[in-house]
Design a protein around this nucleic acid. Sequence first.
DNA 1: AAGATTTGCAACCGCATGAAA
DNA 2: GTTTCATGCGGTTGCAAATCT
Length: 244
Amino acid sequence: MGRQPCCDKLKVKKGPWTAEEDKKLVAFILSNGHCCWRAVPKLAGLLRCGKSCRLRWTNYLRPDLKRGLLTDAEEKLVIDLHASLGNRWSKIASRLPGRTDNEIKNHWNTHIKKKLLKMGIDPVTHKLLHDQTSSTAAASPNSTVTDDDKFSKKHESFDPKDGINQVSQEENANPQQSFLNTMNRDEQVIGCLWDDDMPFIEKLWSSPMSIEEWLLDYQDFGIGDLELERVERGGLADEQIKLN
DNA sequence: AAGATTTGCAACCGCATGAAA
DNA sequence: GTTTCATGCGGTTGCAAATCT
């Protein structure tokens, strides 16, 4: 009847991964692949469940992952895709090479959502909050203060130059509309990404560099080294330019 | 300086779907 | 056809670091 359980849940380890575990998982996947996640932890000598291994690989260890904050262009793309796709993070992530759904979801919840609220844009509907709430706000002027309201007050000195885009003085007169305008301006760039037939990962696989070489060059297994990371990012950027 | 609070991210949880037995 | 599990996905939590009081 049915299949065997993927793991004995009583014996699996939980919590943060160690560098040693990362190395074991990477070494195993690079030499054997991951045709069946259920078998990976046992064969790799890890006391983790397959699900945990899969998440660790896809969200952190995969060699094609970018590190660091999303760029302005990536943020704009996420916002645009979110407007049309909603919280379908995996679909959104598939349009951002080197980014994971988890990373995008986290970035949305911690950065983008707040920026949009600060600019008076509803992060759910992507419409101006003023347009949506003017009637209800007038009806209930003493409505309770939300966390988002608190954020807006706390960040009243927010400088658009640090955020989504730089805007002209004229546009500053109406920051909400200005933001929507910049979104339109980016449509061409976004369109290019939408039309990209060959996903980034396929370009990576087809590059002359082997995956082992790539990993050895770019993976630090979680051991922080900012300078190395900076150089690595430069290397990745160069590689992407070559591939393009 | 120290405790409290907030922030950001990695990892886990639980559900839906499809496939294997 | 039914049961059981693998996988993928989105939501949520836990915790270390940063910031505030």
